[in-house]
């Protein structure tokens, strides 16, 4: 009885690492496909407004300054680099290297979120708020906060995920052959980075 259940578990649960990697990678790309759609809609909503209201955008840019987001951009780019270096170490068989690099990823991600918080504070003190307060700044606000905060939420999830990867790596769950979990997290994290690349250009520069 128990034997059958175990066997069922076995049949339904596990494939070889290589097959698992193939399946997981494809699934992750499909998941990213749907993320692409959501972010496109949110960014498009912003861009439509921005093209029709140049002065408002300009005013907000004046208020926020470029230094903080530029810094944040470099931080996120570095975290992405750290991520891929970690995966490289793992594939070279160095699990400690993986832990170190992913640790940096998580740290940089955390700093990113913290700085985004600082930025939000500055902006809302300057009157750019999410709610309608009567005035064009809040019309800007909702369209600005929706995509950036949604992205920020992705970064937070990513940091938690990175910690999970570290925890797993410390228990010895990954190896040069068995790296699907890390690879999939990498795809996610780099995707979040790509989204930021566009947010940075479309929201803060243009």
């Amino acid at each position: 009885m128990a034997a059958i259940e175990h066997q069922v578990e076995h049949e339904h649960g596990h494939a070889s690492p290589a097959v698992r990697l193939e399946n997981l990678k494809f699934a992750t790309w499909l998941y990213l496909a749907s993320e692409v759609v959501i972010f496109t809609v949110l960014i498009a909503t912003y861009v439509v407004f921005s093209l029709n209201n140049r002065e408002v955008v300009h005013e907000v840019h004046e208020k926020s300054g470029i230094v903080l987001v530029a810094l944040n951009t470099f931080i996120l780019l570095s975290s992405s680099w750290a991520m891929v270096m970690g995966l490289r170490q793992l594939k070279l068989g160095n699990r400690q290297g993986l832990i170190t690099w992913i640790g940096r990823t998580a740290l940089l991600g955390t700093v990113f979120v913290a700085l985004q918080y600082v930025e939000y504070r500055t902006l809302s003190d300057a009157g750019v708020v999410l709610f309608y307060t009567g005035g064009e700044l809040s019309e800007f606000g909702m369209r600005f906060y929706a995509p950036t905060a949604f992205h920020g939420a992705h970064v937070i999830v990513g940091v938690l995920w990175a910690l999970f990867i570290i925890w797993n790596a410390r228990r010895g769950n990954y190896s040069a052959e068995n790296y699907a979990g890390v690879e999939v997290f990498g795809l996610y994290w780099h995707f979040v980075d790509v989204v930021w690349i566009f947010l940075f250009t479309f929201i803060y520069l243009i």
Binding site: S34, V41, L130, F131, Y132, S138, E139, M142, A146
Partner: peptide, 28 residues
């Protein structure tokens, strides 16, 4: 489906957070 998810997110924000994505009187 993500289009729906995006639209629903905005709708929920409009309903509970006081944004006005869909309200022309307030710039939506």
């Amino acid at each position: 489906t993500p289009f729906l998810a995006g639209a629903l997110t905005l709708l929920i924000l409009d309903r509970v957070a006081g944004t006005a994505f869909f309200n022309p009187a307030q710039g939506g």
